[in-house]
């Protein structure tokens, strides 16, 4: 029984989601290979080969794979699938895009966003925005699974797997990449950051969001997040959204500023180790999950917090 993990990367470097997905894969089988599908990914493959417990790294390269076009990834993975009993894919926007396509091509029921491996065919996954957890057992011979990476510890380094080139699918006939509009940032990536500072609707404008949330995040070396309400109102870009339909995060410290705490948002951050909430409404639901709640207007509390952090050397 062998498992194929599809690496999460941006063609330049390997993302930590891959290490976490390898941990989930190792709970299923000791024979875990990693597929790096992209373009110009030699460095990524070398990083993947160092993950402890990985048997082999497969590299497939093409222009369409470099853009993670679903049809191209699907054709490449389907061609490799006969050697594997399960394919595990980090539940990123790219993974969620192609995983079900792979499953349908193989006539398999996909299993989305697992948070626990019970045994090789039984998994736990959240439903209803995380308000319930279902344990499902698959009767398919081959399993196609997306993994909620925050639920697993990252596999360590120290491996030295062989790297092997495999065939990539041909150019896609019906889908063409047009453009990317990727937000450039020196901050840590939201889903992998140790600290996240998020702003909500209370901020009132994009200017205020930048003025208040970003300096605090930079002081803490944190990633910036936002509630759906703040994103919908245009205060923050869409990829900042933390919540069931946005990103799921589980940092060491999550600081929620002016966020009321809709169920949808809580589903995306409630597994954080420590949650801080600053909100002037003492009845805001966010306080029910916060370890440290400060009932205060952010306009007063955030500058004070900046000063206090400076006092302890931050």
């Amino acid at each position: 029984m062998a498992v194929l993990v599809i690496a999460d990367h941006d063609n330049a470097s390997l993302k930590d989601n891959t290490h976490k997905t390898v941990t989930a894969a190792l709970a299923i089988s000791g024979d875990v290979d990693v597929l790096v599908a992209g373009q110009g990914v030699a460095a990524v493959a070398a990083e993947a080969a160092k993950i402890a417990g990985v048997r082999k790294v497969l590299v497939a390269e093409s222009a369409d794979l470099g853009k993670q076009v679903a049809e191209a990834v699907t054709d490449t993975v389907v061609a490799l699938s006969s050697g594997y009993d399960a394919v595990l894919i980090p539940a990123t926007s790219a993974g969620k895009n192609y995983a079900p396509r792979i499953a349908a091509k193989l006539d398999v029921a996909p299993i989305s966003e697992i948070i626990e491996v019970v045994d090789a065919s039984t998994f736990v996954r959240p439903i209803y925005a995380g308000n319930a957890l279902e344990t499902v057992q698959s009767s398919d011979a081959k399993k196609i699974i997306t993994v909620r990476a925050t639920a697993f510890k990252a596999a360590g380094e120290g491996g030295s797997a062989a790297v092997e080139t495999v065939g990539a699918a041909g150019a896609m006939a019906h889908t063409r990449f047009v453009s990317d509009e990727i937000v450039k940032s020196d901050r840590p990536e939201l889903s992998a950051a140790k600290i996240v500072v998020s702003g909500g609707r209370a901020l009132g404008s994009a200017e205020e969001f930048q003025r208040v949330i970003e300096p605090l995040a930079d002081k803490l070396g944190a990633a910036v997040g936002a509630s759906r309400a703040a994103v919908d109102a245009g205060y923050a870009p869409n990829d900042y959204q933390v919540g069931q339909t946005g990103k799921v995060v589980a940092p060491q410290l999550y600081v929620a500023i002016g966020i009321s705490g809709a169920i949808q948002h809580l589903a995306g951050m409630k597994d954080s180790k420590v949650i801080v909430a600053i909100n002037k409404d003492a009845d805001a639901p966010i306080f029910q999950v916060a370890d440290f709640g400060l009932v205060a207007d952010y306009k007063v509390a955030v500058p004070e917090l900046m000063d206090e952090l400076a006092k302890v050397g931050l």
Partner: peptide, 24 residues
């Protein structure tokens, strides 16, 4: 069906609710 639901449970409850008085 290809999947059998063995059980559905509530997620573990988070213990929160503590307040602090100041930024300090």
């Amino acid at each position: 069906p290809r999947l059998k639901v063995l059980k559905v449970v509530e997620p573990p409850k988070r213990q929160g609710g503590a307040k602090v008085e100041s930024a300090a």
